[in-house]
């Protein structure tokens, strides 16, 4: 079992529903994103266009973030998910500077304390959820490991209006992501960094 994801750039409409679903699922404070959909304009009028590019942790097989982590907080599960144990992380940020994709986020103590509306006025939602984070740790997307463990798809995948996020087992040649990678020539981001991402893009 090797979990992975494919982003279909032809489908993605840059709505960022995935971003909100993720923030919701994971009780992420202001300014923290485990996934972002970026946009890029190219070409010259009238032959101009814009592409929407979803990003999240690539769950690299050769994960630089894991290799540099001095505390052992970052580790890889048997199913290939690169995890961060919030209880072990010291917040040194070494993983963050090692990740070529800028996919790490620090849990800012002030943001956790101030809340989304500011002034320490935490909503019930935040009070319920922020407890899972230790201020100062540096964490990231875990492919919704807890959801996938009970057979659910990741929150961002479920909500995506265009089904632009295709999640599955990369070890299974017939899985939906593998088929797409094969048929439409999937490629990872920044392949030259040799991190062997388990996230691919098709366009």
């Amino acid at each position: 079992m090797k979990r992975g994801m494919v982003f279909d750039l032809r489908r993605c409409i840059g709505c960022n529903a995935c971003v909100v679903a993720c923030k919701q699922e994971n009780s992420l404070p202001d300014g923290v994103f485990f996934t972002k959909t970026l946009s890029e304009e190219y070409g010259v009028y009238p032959a101009a266009n814009r592409v929407y590019i979803p990003t999240l942790c690539n769950h690299c097989e050769d994960a630089p973030c894991e290799k540099v982590c001095p505390s052992g907080a970052t580790y890889t599960r048997d199913d290939g998910i690169v995890m961060v144990d919030d209880a072990l992380c010291i917040g040194c940020g070494t993983c963050a500077v090692a990740c070529p994709y800028d996919q790490r986020s620090q849990m800012d103590a002030d943001n956790l304390k101030d809340g989304m509306y500011g002034g320490g006025n935490l909503t019930e939602f935040e009070k319920d959820g922020y407890g899972r984070w230790t201020p100062g740790t540096v964490t990231k997307c875990d492919f919704c490991s807890q959801r996938v463990d009970v057979g659910l798809e990741p929150a961002c995948v479920v909500t995506c209006p265009t089904d632009a996020r295709i999640f599955g087992d990369l070890d299974d040649p017939n899985s939906a992501p593998n088929k797409l990678i094969r048929e439409r020539g999937g490629q990872p981001a920044l392949a030259e960094k040799n991190t062997k991402p388990k996230v691919y893009y098709v366009d």
Binding site: V20, T123, T159
Partner: peptide, 27 residues
């Protein structure tokens, strides 16, 4: 506490999908 909203996959209209606004109702 209301802590998650997802689309209902049994509705053939939105097929379990929500846009970012739909995801934001909690706030």
């Amino acid at each position: 506490i209301i802590n998650k909203i997802e689309g209902d996959p049994t509705n053939p209209s939105n097929n379990g999908k929500l846009c970012p606004k739909g995801n934001s109702a909690i706030l």
